[in-house]
Design a protein around this nucleic acid. Structure first.
Lengths: 341, 341
DNA sequence: AGTGGTCGCTAAACTGATTTAGCAGAGCAT
DNA sequence: ATGCTCTGCTAAATCAGTTTAGCGACCACT
């Protein structure tokens, strides 16, 4: 790979100058007293030879690699990981950096290995990402340099980037209130584990808090709250069937994520009810299925790409200590309507 | 990041030996005549100092970085990218390598930049990945070293890894024949562009070929073929509605991917038909929605994780020239039944 | 004539590893 | 005593950059 590339010495020789001169010119060093003509010659030589510096050699001296490590627990299982990475990739490119990606799979041995691997390569900083928003403990080994937590917070007060789930909860509740829903709003997806253990999820509690706060301010309380052991379609389906078996039918459903909402749609379809005429549905995440459902599912979007980008910016440009909250925009789609009757 | 790490010189000093000796011992060089005691002392010193070699320094000398570039057109838009990356990540870790990931977004300038960025870092090889299986032209700049195409082929005959879409087409057709479907099998998702331009897709043509071949061998031909401009749920929905408007109702539907099948399910639900009692449905990809649908959608899985893994293996262990075909396993789910009546 | 400053540039050290070439001492045969 | 080989080890070169220290020429000033 990249054999026989021109070296700085080649450039210097061709320009009839020393390596020192060539290095200074190419790095645009201020305060050097090299003549305009010397500059010309160096640039011309570099151009002609297609010179590109060997970054291994450079970083040996400067201890900078223009490389960022992106260490995450799980890359594959969620569709969103890609967006997180893409945002980071974009921001990194804008700053002339590159991303070294590793995955720990939540396994301590792999994590240890991943961290050593990136430290051995002298990365300039580490983005430590979680695929579900949560609190986590950062391995001490990476604390020797800049670290930013992505989609996670830590007890150590490291800079971190998380979505504004509480704000999303408020938006969701506000959207329903605005349409006139008051006494028949049901919630699908309560979950003690997610709500109570910040190492499992920060999103559940924050979303719930946002919802309750906004409803509370309007003097409204939830009609029913369904607990679900997981946030998968089958649990949304079961919860929705349960709701439909009760005497008072809800006018609107808030689902804690889009997959639950997908399940709810299935139950509604089977029961012969239509969204949004009979029941409005709104949720969280903006998973691709939200746009595919009929009618389109209104939801608040997890701004993963923004977040990835922000993490790189914090890492390289230095950043705030309070967790950086990225807003979750409301995507209004056809699943919302005023309550029936 | 990683300041004040112990160097080889530190280890050598502590062991009371030369850098040369320390280097040789730690690299397990054969044929050196260093005493067993010297070995002990070096290992002990390295252990005590927590020595880890500086890979920038090492690669300056050896021109090996134990780093692979993963250059892809688009990371974010499909859920599958994550699996491709994860497979590559796993295989890379097993071989003590790490992945440098870049994205070209299908843009020539970005591609140029991405390639320079990875070559500057002296990667040991490049995995050039496409997110939709297709043929593409590989930029000359990376041909200086090992390259493997992932989910793509090129006219240059470079080693490549692609899914066995034709085999998947055969499995799909066979599964329906096996259940007794013969004269009422419809196909949703014909698309001239995808079928005819290998730079757009290789999958469409291969899947179709597999289906036609297996049906042909059984003396069966398709009842109807629906053309779709894209392979999205809305197109599957429209195609299915069209099919249901015709006099002869199909007993089984083959969709060219799961998103089309999802749309077909929606149309079937609205029409009050049930899967699989009224109509069987089968498709391609094994998108997560396939498992979430009710009833679960039978489909052939794109083996992305396997493919990512294979690409790394080909790159590092050297490989075959004919494109390496990775089988697409059939996932049998409840959407299949014998034809009604 | 001597001193000091600026200008334009370079030699050499340095980063941390690998690798080549070769040295000192022991043992043995002549 | 001399020459030879083998053993166990090391000095120094090398990779390709950056950085420090400083050199010679020229000019101005006293």
């Amino acid at each position: 790979m990249g054999r026989n590339r021109a070296t700085l010495a080649d450039v210097a020789r061709r320009a009839g100058l020393s390596k020192t001169a060539a290095s200074m010119v190419l790095n645009g060093r201020e305060g050097t007293r090299l003549s305009a003509e010397a500059h010309q010659r160096v640039f011309a030589a570099a151009e002609e030879l297609g010179y590109r510096p060997n970054l291994a050699a450079r970083s040996l001296r400067t201890r900078k690699t223009a490389t960022i490590a992106f260490v995450s627990d799980i890359v594959a299982t969620t569709r969103f990981a890609g967006d997180l990475i893409r945002g980071a990739l974009d921001a990194a490119r804008e700053r002339d950096h590159v991303l070294l990606i590793t995955e720990t799979q939540g396994d301590a041995t792999f994590e240890q290995y991943a961290i050593e691997a990136v430290l051995d390569r002298q990365v300039d900083g580490v983005i430590y990402a979680a695929m579900a928003t949560r609190r986590l403990a950062v391995p001490g080994a990476i604390l020797g340099g800049p670290v930013v937590l992505l989609n996670a917070t830590s007890p150590d007060g490291l800079p971190s980037v998380v979505p504004d789930d509480e704000g999303a909860g408020r938006s969701v509740a506000a959207a329903l209130l605005e349409l006139g829903h008051r006494d028949a709003i049901a919630l699908i997806g309560r979950n003690r584990l997610k709500e109570d253990d910040p190492e499992v999820s920060l999103a559940a509690r924050a979303r719930l808090r946002g919802i309750q706060q906004t409803l509370g301010e309007a003097g409204v309380s939830l009609l029913t709250e369904c607990f679900c052991t997981e946030w998968l379609p089958e649990h949304g389906y079961a919860a929705m069937r349960g709701l439909l078996g009760k005497p008072k039918r809800p006018s609107a459903i808030i689902c804690m994520n889009d997959r639950l909402a997908f399940g709810a749609y299935q139950a509604l379809g089977e029961a012969g009810l239509t969204v949004p005429e009979d029941i409005s549905v709104i949720s969280f995440d903006d998973d691709p299925i939200a746009a595919w459902l009929r009618p389109g599912l209104a939801t608040t979007a997890l701004p993963h790409e923004q977040m990835g980008r922000r993490a790189v910016e914090l890492l390289l440009d230095g950043g705030t200590n309070p967790p950086s909250l990225v807003p979750m925009p409301l995507r209004r789609r056809r699943s919302l309507a005023p309550p029936p009757g």
